[in-house]
């Protein structure tokens, strides 16, 4: 499979998806560095592996289940103490720009 060369716009787009803000200098630097890694990965992308099944888990295990019995919850005070901002026993966040996608 042929893969196009990574562009600065690609990096900017990906940074947006990943909720990272990059300065212009970082954009340039990362574009170059990531392109080198992806070029190295081109050997992988070019292989004809259409007939090879993917391996997502090295150890083939199936049907790992737990019984529907209650476990321990965490004390609310302990949970909320770790939060940057709390109000009315809830996690407070600044205004949200839109509905969930």
């Amino acid at each position: 499979m042929d893969t196009p060369r990574l562009t600065r716009d690609d990096v900017a787009h990906v940074a947006g998806l990943a909720r990272l803000h990059l300065t212009d200098e970082e954009l340039d630097l990362f574009t170059g560095q990531l392109a080198v890694v992806l070029d190295h990965a081109a050997d992988v992308a070019l292989l004809d592996l259409a007939d090879v099944p993917p391996t997502a888990h090295a150890m083939a295990v199936t049907n790992v289940l737990r019984p529907d019995t209650p476990g321990l919850t965490v004390d609310r005070a302990e949970v909320l103490a770790a939060a940057p901002s709390v109000e009315d026993h809830r996690f407070r966040v600044p205004r949200i720009l839109g509905e969930a996608p």
Binding site: R66, P70, G71, T73, V74, L80, F91
Partner: peptide, 23 residues
């Protein structure tokens, strides 16, 4: 169910906020 899909927290409607929670 009695508990949530991936943890043992109660699957219950109407409890005090952030009480049915775990890591």
């Amino acid at each position: 169910t009695t508990t949530k899909l991936f943890c043992g927290c109660p699957n219950m409607f109407g409890n005090e906020p952030n009480t049915n929670v775990c890591p």
